Amino acid sequence: MDKNRRDLIGLAGAATIGSSLTTFAGRSVHAAQADYPNKPIKLIVPFPPGGGTDLIGRFLAKQLSVALNQSVIVDNRSGAGGMIGSQACAAAPADGYTISVGITGTHALPVAMGVKQTYDPIGDFTAISLLGYSPNFLLVHPSFPARTVAEFIEVVRAHPGVYSFGSWGNGSGGHFAGEYLKKIAKLDMQHVPYKGVAPMINDLVGGQIVVAFGDGGASPPQVKAGKIIALAAAGTRRSPALPDISTFDEQGIKFIADSWYGIFGPTRLPAEIVGRLSDEFRKILAQADSLSMLASFGLVAQAAGPAEFKQLVQRDIELWTKVARDANIQSES
């Protein structure tokens, strides 16, 4: 047998082996996906235990565990406003065994403020499922001379520069909501940042400030007690935590400034796994007990699939980046 022929046969053999290995690897990956999940799943919550996001994550982990007949373990990775936990998810293997809870404050607001992140909130993640929204509330002290949004705007416009609004921190959802309302309603107000929701609510109750934007967790108890007044919910729907409080839209003001919650995985997560998880979360969010439990955490449950959820994140980044630029909202870090 001549050398050229031997070389050709050798190349053909190598090609056959390579093709076989590729086919085997492809079948192995497919089999692994078909067998998913065959080991515990880690759900990263990028905030400390006991908070609203943690409570939502733990409830959903339990429900998902039942649906998949597999353990789902909550891993609290707090720090840097949720960026440490989010980075841990982005850096995880794209095998479906590490997913995370993400919110507006981890995937949209930092980008809007130009915060230096170690991850791309779009390119480094796979959007799996929207979980729902938590509307912010426009709150006032009982002494404030307005009980509707229209009256509020009239009062503030009549006293430019006199009133300020509080939020639970610089660059928080409440801060962005206040600046956004200032822009569309043409209001002259200063921002007063607090280090957390609790001290802001305490000062609002005490009358040290008379206007604030509060979240759906800490605000409702004080509203129900009559210590502060909620003029409107800044969401697409009323909050189950305060069902008697109408939305801005219901009062004739086109204004939405809620915070969304969702589930993410690392980028390049296989479509079969994304579809499986998205379907399971959709089923979970359709259950009456899930709606009731999530409502107790101030969340308006609403599922959306991967494509729609990704579009929502992209739209929010664009919106809040514009608001941050117009209001000169900058990170303190």
Rank of each mutant, 00 (worst) to 15 (best):
K254V: 02
E250S: 00
E250I: 01
P199V: 05
S65G: 15
V210I: 15
I99M: 03
G216H: 12
S78V: 02
G166R: 00
S19C: 15
V323E: 06
V211S: 10
K186W: 08
F281P: 12
F24E: 13
I329C: 02
L138T: 12
S290K: 05
S239I: 02
R238L: 05
C89L: 08
G298I: 10
Y180R: 10
G226S: 05
T321N: 02
D2P: 11
A288S: 15
I128E: 07
R276H: 11
P142V: 10
A301H: 03
F125I: 10
Y180D: 11
K39P: 07
P243K: 00
G13F: 06
L8A: 14
A108W: 00
P142I: 10
I253L: 12
T247Q: 06
E332W: 09
V66G: 11
G169A: 04
I44R: 07
A34K: 13
G226W: 07
A241C: 07
A218W: 02
L64A: 11
Q311K: 11
E308I: 07
E179K: 07
E250L: 01
F297L: 13
R58T: 14
S164V: 02
G81L: 01
K3Q: 14
V223N: 08
S292H: 12
D2L: 00
G169T: 06
P40L: 07
F264R: 08
A286I: 04
D316K: 09
M113E: 13
F264I: 13
L285Y: 01
P243V: 01
G214R: 00
L269F: 03
Q190L: 13
G262H: 01
L21T: 11
Q222T: 15
G235E: 09
H175E: 13
T98M: 03
S172C: 09
R238D: 07
A304R: 10
I229N: 05
A91C: 03
R27I: 06
G161A: 07
V210N: 15
I263H: 02
M1S: 13
H141E: 12
G305L: 06
P37A: 05
V66N: 15
S129Q: 09
R325S: 12
S239M: 05
I56A: 09
R325H: 04
G105N: 05
F144S: 12
Q251K: 00
V274C: 09
A94C: 08
A233M: 03
G171P: 07
I128S: 08
R157V: 06
L291V: 14
G161W: 05
R6I: 15
F47Q: 13
I256P: 01
A88G: 01
Y133G: 02
Q314G: 05
S28W: 07
I17G: 03
R237M: 12
R58W: 03
L312D: 12
I273F: 09
D7F: 10
A185G: 07
N328T: 05
G174Y: 01
S143E: 12
A146P: 14
S28C: 04
K3C: 09
F24Q: 14
V156L: 04
G96Q: 03
I317F: 00
P266W: 04
G169P: 05
I9A: 13
